[in-house]
Design a protein around this nucleic acid. Structure first.
Lengths: 225, 225
DNA sequence: TTAATAATGTGATGCATATCAAGTTTGAAT
DNA sequence: ATTCAAACTTGATATGCATCACATTATTAA
């Protein structure tokens, strides 16, 4: 049986737990394999567990007006999902859906809360995680508002290349519709933006597979908006 | 001499401190009166203190591409400012500027960090604060992307009326340019949006003073985008 | 394989809002 | 009061992108 104790990719927060705290954690935690399309948490439902993304990839999204999906961010391995609603609000304010087969640990809310109140180092790591997330959100917010589509797409391609896939040749596990929901545009405009970036030789794209040909130019487009 | 111990509007986090922890806090904390326009923290500078907004109002902003100011959010009394960079990054990633005369407490970073690691309840309150902030950011993000100007302005007017001023007759302490930076538009478009909402009788505006005449209609506009 | 369905691409058009260019008001300084 | 600069308003024009309509290509099921 797998234990958190022997888990190689447990979070820094879990690292900080004492032996008996880890036991509490472990007893109220279960790891589940999820496939693309599976729902981790769903907006509007009661918040009963915190999810820890061990491996894979998920989209964090939210229903906007008229039901339009808005992708808020991409959750990478090491992310806690659904943590925002465990302390005060009890209803999930956003959904999380797997976009690349994932291993997810679900930790009971009460346990999570107990550990925060019991071990300051555990809380400290969570604070660090939340702070970094907020700064990312700020950056993303400013970028979305001030750049136009080509710049936003360039951002996204560089983000997947540098921060997620660590490669210049990779797949973005999002449909054109989802890409649009992520860069705040429409399916059609995403298609055209991809064509723009391809035409000037910065990328080569086939389906969901992206190959960066000219990173410098792509960066310049990203920076200039 | 004023002490945190006797402070009526200290944060919930400070509430949770023990007597000697409170003393540590107090010794490394100083309250300062700031006027409109004064800078609380500045993007790019070293993060040496956490600011706690006791009273007044501040804008949290960030330089975008080409130097365009982007207002990320409004900080209300009870907000911790500059907390995001104290643990990992050391450089402020955003600025905070007073928009209504404020009382601000500056707490030394080392002290703040020490208290997080020493008192789990203190950290717990901060986590709660950070979680709520992130959810607000998500909502704001989705709204900005999916609503058009009139809806975004309606949002903002209702936000000031309900969440900040608790009145239907109040001043928004932002210039038209700042309002634009807040609702992600331009000075001119803000003017026109104000005119739109005035023309249909939802609000009456003179300068920075806003009077809500038809809250229901305003709400409808906000909801429909 | 073929049929059916979903995802994607493309061209034509319209619209919201940015941008530009004057004017006008406001507020501070003299 | 008068002057000056900053903030604001207003109209005309430009443009980026959404929207619509339809063609094409993948993908799945039969």
């Amino acid at each position: 049986m797998k234990t958190c104790e022997s888990c190689a990719i447990r979070s820094k927060a879990v690292e900080s737990l004492s032996k008996d705290e880890l036991e509490i954690y472990q007893e109220n935690c279960s790891e589940i394999q999820l496939d693309t399309g599976d729902i981790i948490i769903k907006e509007g439902l009661l918040s009963t567990h915190v999810a820890y993304l061990k491996s894979g990839l998920a989209k964090i999204h939210k229903k906007g007006i008229k039901g339009t999906e808005q992708i808020l961010k991409i959750a990478k391995p090491g992310s806690y999902i659904g943590i925002q609603t465990i302390l005060s609000q009890k209803i999930h304010q956003y959904s999380a859906t797997v976009i690349e087969d994932s291993a997810v640990c679900f930790i009971d809310v009460a346990t999570f809360k107990e550990l925060i109140l019991r071990n300051a180092a555990f809380g400290h790591e969570l604070i660090q995680f939340l702070c970094q997330e907020e700064l990312s959100n700020f950056n993303r917010f400013a970028n979305m508002q001030q750049k136009q589509i080509d710049g936003r797409l360039a951002d996204t391609i560089l983000y997947f290349a540098n921060d997620i896939k660590n490669s210049i040749d990779f797949t973005i596990p999002l449909s054109r519709n989802e890409l649009a929901a992520f860069i705040c545009s429409t399916r059609e405009s995403v298609t055209r933006a991809i064509k723009d970036l391809s035409d000037i030789g910065t990328i080569h794209v086939t389906g969901k597979r992206f190959h960066i040909l000219n990173a410098d130019l792509l960066k310049k487009i990203s920076e200039n908006g």
